[in-house]
Amino acid sequence: MSRNRVIPGFGLSLGYATLYTSLIVFIPLAALAASGISLGAETFWAVVSHPQAVASYTLSFGASLVAALINLIFGLLVAWVLVRYTFPGKRIADALVDLPFALPTAVAGIALTALYGRNGWFGQHLESWGFKVAYAPAGIVVALTFIGLPFVVRTVQPVLEGLERELEEAAASLGANRWQTFRRVLLPALVPALLTGFALSFARAVGEYGSVVFISGNMPYRTEITPLLIYSKLEQYDYAGASALGMMMLVFSFVLLLAINGLQYWSLRRRGGG
């Protein structure tokens, strides 16, 4: 085979990339899978169906879903405004969208907690109206919204930029009003990108740990997310329990990753075809 490759470095680069990927990613993940499997079905089931675990799934998934929905709506709005309109400070706003990627999650966690806590800038008002955010599920949603914010914006933005203005002009010339044009021409073209962004934001939220631990209060059954449950099992040297829950999350991540890849493929094809 090597005879057929004129460009040099195939063996070296692929060999190194494969070795490194195996050592860093594949073998440790295999260790997790092996550890989960070695528990046996009964123990595994006992761990993953424990009420505390189930409560944590409900919370993790529920809060992630709400956060991803918020990001879906506002992400579309932000992308729209950044692509379509001009206003002072636009470039700063655009750069700022990536803050959640750049800001360490622990910093985000303590900042949000201080902000929504009883004495915080937002917290004191919200609490006087009867909303408890910090140390409650709402706080988790706030943190997850923060860390998932860039995803929808950054997947929708390039698609929106790539849309031909002729499409809208054609719709307008056929008598559609602005809302009809948006609903029936623009929105369908954005659906794959919106779904991709939603899924990415959701996936990130389900696994998030750093920003949530500060604001959630970590009360079992009430504000304990799944990653935190794994963490506390590890702290108690309950490797078996941690592995079982870890494997559940790993399988879930993997399925979501495949779904996202599928969505991105779809999105690309739609863009290519359009």
Binding site: A17, T18, T21, V25, F26, I27, P28, L29, A31, L32, S35, A203, V206, G207, E208, Y209, G210, P227, L228, I230, Y231, L234, Y239, A242, S243, G246, M249, L250, S253, F254, L256, L257, I260, N261
Partner: peptide, 24 residues
């Protein structure tokens, strides 16, 4: 396969990232 494996760390929870090394 290699591309998917490269993406995987983005999809995995940070806690799992720590856990796998503890297990090894």
């Amino acid at each position: 396969v290699l591309i998917t494996l490269i993406d995987l760390p983005f999809a995995v929870s940070p806690v799992i990232a720590g856990l796998i090394y503890v297990l090894v």
